[in-house]
Simulated scan of single mutants.
Amino acid sequence: MARYLILIYGDEQQWDAMTPEQRENHHAAHVAFRDAAGPGVLGGGKLQRTATATSLRAGDGGPVPTDGPFVETKEVLGGYYLMEAPDLDAAIALASRLPEVAASHSGVEIRPLVERN
């Protein structure tokens, strides 16, 4: 089985503007994704807002921490899943169930992990 990191991106302002019903539907879609993936989901989580991020950059005396994400962009990393799937096609089929795939302000990136021997 290959391992994939499913990165969930979106617009924080759009997420914040969701109605309670939209939030419930969004949550239900994630539950459906996890149910469909079953034991293939190895981990995952929702990230705190980008205002809480700390980035490290090179400095004269070593790494320098700065507030905020590494780059400024409208779509931010909001969560992730670590999962196993037989192949990329299976990972795509599962990730397609995530609500962020259908939202105009969101998206999902699928990245295979480098497997070490």
Rank of each mutant, 00 (worst) to 15 (best):
M1T: 13
M1K: 13
R3D: 13
L5I: 12
Y9D: 02
Y9A: 11
D11V: 07
D11K: 04
Q14F: 12
Q14N: 10
W15E: 15
A17S: 15
M18S: 04
T19C: 01
P20E: 05
P20D: 08
E21D: 14
E21W: 03
R23F: 10
E24H: 13
E24S: 15
E24I: 12
E24L: 15
N25E: 14
N25L: 15
H26D: 14
H26Y: 14
H27C: 11
H27A: 15
H27V: 14
H27D: 10
A28C: 10
H30C: 00
H30K: 01
V31L: 12
A32G: 06
A32M: 07
A32D: 09
A32E: 05
F33W: 05
F33D: 00
D35E: 13
D35A: 08
D35R: 08
A36E: 03
A36K: 13
A36H: 02
A37I: 01
G38M: 01
G38K: 04
P39E: 12
P39L: 04
P39N: 07
G40P: 01
G40D: 00
G40K: 03
V41H: 05
L42N: 03
L42R: 13
L42M: 08
G43P: 00
G43L: 02
G45S: 04
G45T: 00
K46L: 05
Q48A: 08
R49N: 13
T50F: 08
T52K: 10
T52L: 05
A53V: 05
A53E: 04
A53W: 04
T54K: 10
S55F: 10
G59R: 06
G59Y: 03
D60N: 11
G61I: 08
G62Y: 01
P63M: 09
V64F: 03
T66H: 07
D67V: 03
D67M: 01
G68Y: 09
G68N: 11
P69L: 07
F70S: 10
V71S: 13
E75A: 11
E75F: 08
L77W: 09
L77M: 12
L77A: 07
G79L: 01
G79A: 01
Y80S: 02
Y81S: 00
Y81T: 00
Y81H: 00
Y81K: 00
L82N: 02
L82A: 03
L82R: 04
L82V: 15
M83F: 02
E84V: 00
P86G: 13
D87N: 12
D87L: 02
D89H: 04
D89Y: 01
A91Y: 04
I92M: 11
A93L: 05
A93C: 08
A93Q: 12
A93W: 03
A95T: 03
S96L: 02
P99M: 02
E100C: 05
E100G: 15
A102V: 06
A103W: 09
S104M: 06
S104V: 12
S104L: 08
S106C: 15
G107D: 07
E109W: 05
E109G: 06
I110V: 09
I110T: 05
L113I: 13
L113D: 06
V114G: 12
V114W: 15
E115F: 03
E115K: 11
N117F: 08
N117G: 15
N117V: 14
